[in-house]
Amino acid sequence: MDISFDLLGNALVSGLLLGGFYAAVTIGISISFGMLDIVNIAHPAFILLGSYIAYIMNANFGFDPILTAIVAMPAFYALGVAIYHIYDVSFERRGDTALRGLSFFFGLLFITEVALTLVFGVDYRLVEAVYIGPTLHFGVIDLPLRLLVPALVSVALMVCLHLYLSRTFIGRAVQAVAQDPLALRLMAADPSRIKRIAFGLSIATASLAGAVLIIIQPVEPSIGREYIGRIFAICVLGGLGSFAGTLVAAIILGVMENITATFFGPSWAPAVAFGFLLLTLAFRPSGIFGRA
């Protein structure tokens, strides 16, 4: 194959930026699945919900999608707290997280998708903002702001979450519950309460992830499914719950997907995530940074 280096360079750079965005999409799963062991496969549905909220506010009032998402975060947090409460009472305490807990989240994913389809139809929706059109040029390398802004927002989100989890009391309690819920209970802290807060946080990130998603690409209700494979591949590859690992894994996947899309056609890109996931599960289930 005739590889053009301009093309390869651009594929690498935009893959890098795409990876930053994937990290924002995955961070919620890194908290809920990686730390709390809650297999929230409905996470992409909440991300799409975030996209559509950004879309409504942008289309009707011209609000900036990222600002809208930040304002909507408390509402997403409350939603997360409510969902965790149901999950805790109905499945964790009954000890039935595997079959029915998973089916519960699958049901939520499906309900959200169908409800969004009923309200918005299957047309692609997009937002408008000053940073969506322009592109910065450095020699042969193009830096579209449409990808750069989401990548920066996503890194900022990760830094904030990292600081929160490592510097505050509640944040450290979340890390403790990830390591040993029983020990936390012996310290007279309530693991359910801590997990409720952490799950709320993970859903709150979906608001922002949804806004950056609709900045990067037009959105329709069923695209959430494409992200399930991606986010779990990144989360597992990143070593479940490690933020640095998540970012590196997200960038690896972003670059791989972009190179695949550039040289083999975009219709093959979704297969990359799955190949990644299967290979990781088969050969290195603890992730690239995990302790083997």
């Binding site: 297999v39 499914r225 494409e226 399930i228 494979g229 779990f232 591949a233 996931l277 299967l278």
Partner: peptide
């Protein structure tokens, strides 16, 4: 999770 991704 793998089965979900496999469908895609």
């Amino acid at each position: 999770i793998a089965t979900l991704a496999m469908a895609v």
